[in-house]
Design a protein around this nucleic acid. Structure first.
Lengths: 199, 199
DNA sequence: CCTTTGTTTAACAAAATTGTCAAATATCAT
DNA sequence: ATGATATTTGACAATTTTGTTAAACAAAGG
């Protein structure tokens, strides 16, 4: 293999992503990750040197991919409601793919570095948020949404989309009789959210 | 000290509760917990034998206390909306006190034992849930709530109450300019939730 | 005073985990 | 075939963490 081939490196990252954020095994050891990837543990250190660096990279790339996806989703030509509708789709899809990502982020929030990088993101997104709020204001004036603080609308929106998926194992076990019942509820989730957000 | 005095044992439990579920340090070592409690590490093992047992006890007692609190809150004489209103108060208060508890529960959900104990709780609560759904049905028929699947109403409710608090560090850092702005939003959270749930 | 209970101290073994290294193999490109 | 890169193997030191034990000390009650 003379030519640089990063497929194994990529494969390790994807495996780590799976173990951490799909399966929620936040304390997985380097050995477990290597096993899951079908690769020798030394190779992890060869490519990423430390477990922490690997986790950092995986997290950063995951977040970045999601941000890109979200941005691509919002077509300015669409109606506000249609925008929201598509956002719900993409957002739910993403959390379904990596259900433990948010829980991990929160659990790491006492870490100062994380907070810093988050605040940087906020600044980059603040323009989009303001634009969103303006559109929202128009909808409220048009009587298609109850008048309220835009912030509260945003919180309602994110909450209703994320929570049932992020806390899925908890809700499924503690409030529903069967997994099937929960899956059915999720299937109709989007309409329920839209109905709650719009008059 | 001839007489049995369990104040230190209690103090250790409270400290563990604080470290784990108020501060979110899920990986705190027995040494760190002992330090936080101002007590020798050996004493932890003396009372609880293992770290795992201590965590189990703390978690079980915490959940049980919350369940009791919730049950006490619901006065059958109140109107449905008033019941919901009080539930929001108690619920938010509880999450404010132990913001990391839900995240921990979710992170442990791959653990089979947890799932089992959760399912047991579901069975105990299923009667209450059904009663809740019946009341909800009455409200819908009376036109005070949009007609929808009661399950979706419940998911909307829990989501809007919990998510902004459970994910607080995340939302605060990534979407708000200041902590103060977030606190202000939380102050008006209850009315916003009620407005979204009721017509 | 003596006993019991609570608590600390120190030391220890065992296990788990991490990160590093050197050497051996494998695989591919030229 | 040769060289270069990818990957495995085995071994190792260092560290962290856990759980146990024995001994000493403190305090309070009878």
């Amino acid at each position: 293999m003379a030519a640089k081939d990063n497929s194994t490196e990529q494969h390790i990252k994807e495996t780590a992503m799976r173990v951490f954020f799909k399966e929620g095994r936040f304390n997985a050891t380097t050995q477990e990750i290597a096993d899951a990837a079908g690769v020798n543990r030394t190779l992890l250190h060869y490519y990423f040197r430390t477990r922490e660096i690997l986790l950092d990279i995986v997290l950063k790339e995951g977040k970045s991919a999601f941000r890109t996806k979200l941005a691509e989703t919002v077509d300015p030509a669409l109606s506000f409601k249609e925008k929201i509708s598509r956002l719900i789709d993409v957002w739910m899809e993403h959390i379904l793919e990596f259900p433990y990502l948010d829980a991990y982020l929160v659990s790491q929030m006492s870490n100062t570095d994380f907070l810093e990088s988050m605040k940087k993101e906020e600044k980059e997104n603040s323009k989009k948020t303001e634009a969103f709020f303006e559109e929202l204001q128009v909808e409220m004036n048009a009587g298609r949404i109850k008048k309220m603080d835009p912030t509260q609308f945003l919180l309602n929106f994110i909450s209703m989309v994320s929570y049932p998926l992020v806390m899925r194992p908890l809700l499924e076990a503690s409030m529903f009789k069967t997994k099937r019942a929960y899956n059915q509820a999720l299937e109709h989730r989007k309409e329920a959210i839209l109905a709650a957000l719009f008059i």
